[in-house]
Design a protein around this nucleic acid. Structure first.
Lengths: 153, 153
DNA sequence: GATGAAATCCGAGTCAC
DNA sequence: GTGACTCGGATTTCATC
């Protein structure tokens, strides 16, 4: 995977701010010709620098108004449980983030569901049912000051 | 803010999966004419159901390879410190998420920086400098199994 | 009041240079 | 990297239900 130069970086920044920019707009924002811009952008997609372009959707509008953060502590004596948790997390669409961390937890999960009831179901049926889970700490999100802010680059 | 019907929902879902869909593709995916599709999509943007469309960018490619989760505990005796933390978080671009939670922390932050050194700078200059902060717990992310997964709707 | 068909206009994508 | 050319989709208009 070759690197990116200053122009590629400008293209990435512009498309990260607004993924609907037309090639023409993008071209003069980064000061190259439309043809050049088009070729470079295609390469950035092809090389995997841009895994996806997605419309952000207000969660409440689609019945996913509840956000919950979960800290998971695993049993250190069963290393297989790490793989089990990761596989499970990948298969649960409500789990938006699954991060292996250093500190008082082993994993931190970000979960979006319809309401508290839905979370309770997910919690009891999918999370505590996993092998080697020693402890699960739940943090209900009362207010989202900022979420998925654009990357600062 | 009026509601959304079944077709609007289908449009939201399609654009959330792929924000680069042309209006023509979108139209036959949701089984309406291009004109209708266009009008509805415009409305969804205008009414704020789609706050933004953004290209996802591989963080390492733009020098933001380090992800850190931070738990913040505030001094309960100084309610102003909540407002202070929120204002500060909004103004720090490296803070991607800032969530007020119920549980052993008051806030959970998701932070992206270049490396550990950058985090250390941010930590000492911006975070512990805030008024009324009683404790800050840092969770370095060792591995990201899943991040910003699409909403399950 | 919202829809679909048609008509116009503009940008994407491709070419030669 | 530039400029021109073609094709297809975006956007508007309009008749219709």
């Amino acid at each position: 995977m070759p690197g990116i130069d200053r122009i590629d970086r400008a293209i990435l920044r512009a498309l990260h701010r607004d993924g609907r920019l037309t090639n023409a707009e993008l071209a003069d924002r980064v000061n190259v010709s439309p043809a050049t811009c088009h070729r470079r952008t295609q390469r950035l997609f092809a090389e995997g620098f841009i895994p996806a372009v997605r419309a952000e959707v207000v969660p409440d509008a689609v019945g996913l108004g509840a956000l919950v953060m979960v800290g998971v502590v695993l049993d250190r004596s069963t290393p297989d449980s790490f793989a089990a948790l990761e596989t499970a997390a990948e298969g649960i669409p409500e789990v938006l983030d699954c991060l292996l961390v250093a500190g008082e937890f082993d994993y931190l999960l970000k979960i979006r569901v319809r309401d508290m009831n839905s979370f309770n179901t997910l919690h009891s049926r999918k999370l505590i049912a996993l092998p080697g889970v020693r402890q699960i700490r739940t943090f209900f999100v009362l207010k989202s000051i900022k979420e998925n802010a654009p990357l600062p680059f």
